[in-house]
């Protein structure tokens, strides 16, 4: 259920009619995809809808970075921001339980790609994998990612550094040096 004040945030976030239209196109095009994404992580259908709504608010706030609703960049972001919101919601639901370090493993599960490096990326924690896709597959800049992932500049660099370290370690296990 969208909350009242989130509506207000949304309206404030998209004051420009062309951006409103762009948001509408993103909604029409990716709503189902985002719901499928959320339902992979959250078993409760209402929770999944809540996560998708939060994802749409994030999209609204970052609409200026999503210039082409039809592009793979926008599609990837729609899925990834939904995955993030779903994981966040899952954590909130589990807040009163003692979460183990395994929480990082919750995220989208998909068939492993064939390439060794790609397999290593797929094994990264969701937040690192999401970062890799948006930065290295879709070409979003660090500045864009700060807003899109709601991270500080320092956090972006930290994730990039940590991700590369993890990736190198994973590849070493496969007998590769990068």
């Amino acid at each position: 259920m969208a909350e009242v004040t989130e509506m207000l945030i949304y309206l404030q976030a998209i004051p420009d009619p062309p951006e409103q239209q762009r948001f509408r196109r993103i909604y029409d095009r990716y709503r189902d995809l985002m719901l499928h994404t959320a339902r992979r992580i959250l078993t409760d259908p209402q929770d999944a809808e809540d996560a998708v709504q939060e994802a749409f608010f994030a999209i609204a706030r970052n609409i200026s970075s999503l210039s082409d609703p039809e592009s793979s960049r926008t599609r990837s972001y729609a899925v990834i921001v939904t995955e993030r919101k779903a994981i966040d919601l899952y954590r909130r639901r589990k807040r009163q339980e003692a979460l183990s370090l395994q929480e990082e493993s919750y995220g989208l599960d998909f068939p492993a790609p064939s390439g060794v490096v790609a397999q290593a990326i797929a094994k990264l924690p969701p937040r690192d994998r999401e970062f890799v896709i948006l930065k290295y597959a879709e070409g979003y800049t660090n500045r864009e990612l700060m807003g899109m992932l709601d991270l500080s500049y320092a956090a972006i660099h930290s994730i990039d550094h940590r991700m590369k370290q993890r990736l190198r370690a994973l590849l070493r296990e496969e007998g590769m040096e990068v």
Partner: peptide, 11 residues
């Protein structure tokens, strides 16, 4: 990284 990231994204 870019090539592998594309592969992961597609998967």
């Amino acid at each position: 990284l870019c090539a592998a990231a594309l592969e992961v994204r597609d998967a």
